[in-house]
């Protein structure tokens, strides 16, 4: 393949990813208290990238984990984090706190 074509495809991919980041994603907040998620169930729009801001109000560390969403992130005690999810197809996606999996459970409904 001609080098110019490769360059063009590369530039397009770069431009597309920049454009994608510039378009701000709607933000949803979740809190962790006593190893529970508040709200434990959240509804977000389908086919939309969403910014989750998660506050850990406990003194202990937690790890936000979801096999359904392909997400995994440590949140230190008394701290916060940001996780982007989606665009997703309509359905229910489970998440949990890996360090306290018995209590810290939640679901994201995509509609």
């Amino acid at each position: 393949m001609n080098f110019k074509y490769i360059q063009m495809i590369f530039m397009f991919a770069l431009w597309f990813s920049v454009l994608n980041s510039v378009l701000a994603a709607p933000e949803f907040k979740i809190e962790i208290k006593n190893h529970l998620f508040f709200p434990a169930e959240l509804t977000i729009p389908a086919d939309t990238k969403v910014k989750l801001r998660i506050f850990n109000r406990d003194d202990t560390n937690e790890e936000f984990e979801s096999y359904d969403l392909n997400r995994e992130k440590v949140i230190m005690g008394n701290s916060q984090t940001v996780i982007f999810v989606g665009p997703l197809k309509p359905g229910s996606y489970e998440f949990f706190g890996e360090f306290y999996p018995k209590t810290a459970q939640g679901k994201i409904h995509v509609e």
């Binding site: 597309f16 990813s17 994608n20 980041s21 994603a25 990238k49 910014k51 096999y67 392909n70 997400r71 995994e72 992130k73 940001v82 996780i83 982007f84 989606g86 665009p87 997703l88 197809k89």
Partner: peptide, 19 residues
């Protein structure tokens, strides 16, 4: 996965589901 989670890389629908 990490770059997508941070929104440093464009995200997309999953291609298949083998779960």
């Amino acid at each position: 996965t990490m770059l997508t989670q941070a929104d440093w890389m464009a995200s997309g629908h999953s291609l298949w589901d083998t779960s």
